[in-house]
Write a protein that binds this DNA or RNA. Structure first.
Length: 726
DNA sequence: AGACATGCAC
């Protein structure tokens, strides 16, 4: 304690340093606004031999712990008090449980237990609140036990605290048990229970409980309506959300800005952007929250440009709305724009948090540029996000998508804690790179470590089998899904199996599976079949599956594109023309093929036959040179991949100007000799380019890594890691 | 009240 006095004496004097009586002390204490002043007052107390006056010291503690910076000081003072009165302890607990460091509440609780201090029913609500905030389930159940032992099991405030504590610790069943035992529930209790279901993602229970609450005669307040609307949004339950909106209107419930935001957010989360917009436009003073709800809605449902318009109009922008906009670009496949915004935000002095980082990392993953990825990884470590589980999971995916399986694996191996997402991500990383053996072996390792695979894990493993032609292994794993893990296969899993059979040219098995599976085939299944038919040129079956898709979704762009490709392969140009007309009438366009290459921290982008690049002349010169070199080892352009009705010579020219070939030639001109050439393409690589890459890797002795729409091809010495099976 | 990491096919 003496050291404290030493330091405090050096501080500037308190405005009223002459403290002699407890009475003046009180007055000064309540007017003390800084920690330094408090410490001076404390010194005065000690000097005036008032040290044993518990009430003075406690008052000091209580007024100081409202200052968030002085928590530790408050604790140290508290610890010196001999026998604090219970009601003052409770007040201290309450302040701590609301503070920025709720875990300190539990330290005080432990001290109180150790010192045998008295607790009463008012001690428990703050303790439970603190447990809820730190998700300390084990100490929470201990406190529950203590409360019961002391006979407080029917105190409604303690019961409400217990419900909140269990819900916050993810123990929703326990929470419900306490809730059901309660004889008096007010709107707060209902709200906590409903919010608990919301946090656990049990939206059906949310709505069910809300109905129960209304019929039990408890009136819904604005707070609970916000919770319900948020649940509707997260569950994408538009019809219930609309009903809640109507309920609000019919019952003349006052709509404050919170509730208004909740309504707009419900519509925008459900993708009902027109309805969201109607309400949004009527709001005269739009705050940052409601605007962010619009930005996020437009972003999620593919209208990133509309999101940007709102974003640009916003006067005040906080971290959340920057994050929403960045994530919007990352999701809309505009990773460069996402990263540009990320940097703009940082230059404005806004410090990213973990959620912003997840979107920025995801943007790097989409971009597929390894140098950029390394940069963000360094940024992550420098800014203290390196230990976060979800950040590391995102990094695994990012490195995998940037072509560095080694780095993805490095992140995975160095993680102190791994969850099912980490394992699924690394399995998928192997799958993407065509390393089915490791994908399968990691799947087994994960089970040995008692991490339960989930539906997504199986998508990764089955995808690996499918892309490596491992039919038997895939079948075994698929059946273990139900028999060993109790996971009921969904459409996407049947889709993987259909794909597995089709790639192995086992169309009969694929059809049999579709006919015998317990689910009605949907777009996913038909899409999978259709895609495989396109690869194998199975026109009849492909046409059949495409038509099934169009029955459900007449504007399905994939089906129309594949159909037109299939007709083109058959040289049915009239049918092709009709498809093209239909597509342009519906406003559907084939995505333009585009390849990117990253060199010296710059990203160069190429479209088919484009001459936008400033070194275009050199690139086309190099292309001619490469083609003649390859012809010496037997290359001839494969024009069967060109699906437009033009002369053979023109087809040759078209196939030679594919964007990945341009990117490759630029890499050959500008990259360091001996370094690998990394290309990212938005669509599936065609057979001719695939062959071209193989030959270049041999003739020019360069490693080439190409990421296409779904996977990686590593070309070395004339061979591809996909073993020509993709 | 608003932003969030793993996933089939096109």
């Amino acid at each position: 304690m003496s050291s404290l006095i030493q330091t405090t004496l050096a501080l500037p004097p308190h405005p009223n340093p002459n403290l002699t009586t407890p009475c003046t002390l009180f007055t000064v204490l309540t007017s003390s606004t800084t920690l330094n002043h408090l410490k001076q007052v404390h010194a005065q107390i000690l000097r005036s031999k008032l040290e044993n006056s518990n009430s003075v010291l406690l008052k000091l503690v209580l007024s100081s712990c409202t200052l968030s910076t002085s928590l530790d000081y408050a604790l140290s003072v508290f610890c010196q008090i001999q026998n604090p009165e219970t009601h003052l302890c409770n007040k201290f607990l309450r302040e701590l449980s609301r503070s920025t460091k709720p875990e300190k509440t539990l330290l005080v609780y432990e001290k109180m237990r150790r010192d045998g201090l008295t607790m009463d029913r008012f001690s428990f609500p703050p303790l439970l609140k603190a447990v809820a905030r730190v998700s300390g389930f084990s100490v929470g159940s201990e406190i529950h036990g203590l409360a019961s032992k002391m006979g407080f099991y029917s105190d409604p405030f303690i019961q409400t605290g217990l419900v909140g504590m269990y819900a916050a610790c993810g123990q929703i069943m326990e929470a419900r048990l306490v809730f059901d035992k309660m004889s008096h529930r007010d709107v707060v209790t209902w709200n906590i229970m409903i919010e608990g279901y919301c946090q656990s993602g049990l939206f059906d229970d949310v709505l069910e409980l809300f109905e129960e609450m209304k019929s039990s005669g408890v009136e819904a307040d604005q707070m609970i309506l916000c919770t319900i609307l948020s649940a509707c949004g997260r569950a994408r339950n538009l019809s219930y959300g609309k009903a809640v909106h109507e309920f609000i209107m019919e019952n003349n419930i006052a709509i404050d800005s919170h509730l208004q935001s909740a309504i707009v957010n419900m519509y925008s989360s459900c993708g009902a952007m027109d309805l969201a917009r109607q309400i949004y436009d009527q709001i005269s003073s739009k705050n940052v929250v409601v605007s962010t709800a619009m930005v996020s809605g437009y972003s999620k449902f593919g209208q990133v440009e509309d999101a940007r318009l709102i974003f640009n109009q916003m006067i005040k922008k906080d971290l959340v709305c920057w994050s929403a906009m960045i994530s919007g670009y990352a999701k809309s496949d505009q990773p460069q724009e996402a990263l540009k915004l990320f940097n703009e935000m940082r230059h404005l002095g806004i410090v990213p948090d973990q959620i912003t980082m997840l979107s920025a990392i995801s943007a790097c993953a989409h971009l597929g540029a390894l140098d950029q990825a390394k940069w963000i990884h360094i940024f992550v470590n420098k800014n203290g996000f390196g230990g976060a589980l979800s950040v590391n999971n995102a990094l695994i995916d990012m490195y995998a998508k940037c072509g560095s399986l080694d780095r993805a694996r490095g992140v995975f191996e160095n993680m102190p804690r791994k969850n099912v997402v980490s394992w699924s991500s690394i399995i998928n990383a192997f799958a993407m790179h065509g390393d089915a053996n490791n994908a399968i072996s990691f799947f087994h390792k994960m089970k040995e470590k008692n991490i339960e695979p989930n539906g997504v894990t199986f998508v990764g493993v089955l995808y690996a089998c499918s892309h490596a032609g491992l039919v038997e292994e895939g079948k075994k794993i698929f059946s273990s899904m139900t028999s060993e893990h109790g996971i009921i296969p969904e459409h996407k899993h049947y889709g993987c199996m259909v794909d597995l059979y089709c790639r192995a040219n086992l169309l009969r098995e694929a059809l049999e599976l579709i006919e015998t599976m317990p689910l009605a085939p949907n777009i996913v299944i038909w899409g999978s079949l259709m895609a495989s038919c396109q690869i194998h040129g199975e026109v009849e079956l492909g046409e059949f599956s495409a038509k099934r898709i169009l029955e459900v979704e007449p504007d399905h762009d994939g089906a129309l594109i594949v159909l037109s490709n299939l007709y083109a392969r058959e040289r049915r140009w009239e049918d092709v023309g009709q498809m093209r007309k239909l597509m342009s009438r519906k406003g559907i366009f084939k995505e333009k093929a585009c390849s990117r290459i990253e060199l010296n921290n710059e990203i160069h982008q190429f479209f088919m036959a484009d001459r936008y690049h400033k070194q275009a002349d050199q690139i086309y010169e190099k292309l001619e040179d490469v083609v003649s070199q390859l012809k010496l080892v037997g290359y001839t352009p494969n024009t069967s991949v060109i699906l437009v009705d033009v002369e053979e010579d023109e087809k040759k020219e078209l196939v030679l100007s594919h964007s990945e070939k341009l990117a490759l030639c630029y890499g050959l001109i500008s990259g360091n000799k001996g370094s690998s050439i990394r290309i990212v393409k938005n669509l599936r690589i065609c057979e001719d380019c695939h062959n071209f890459m193989k030959l270049v890797s041999k003739v020019y002795e360069r490693e080439i890594v190409v990421r296409d729409r779904t996977r990686f091809h590593h070309y070395n010495d004339g061979l591809c890691s996909c073993k020509d099976y993709w």
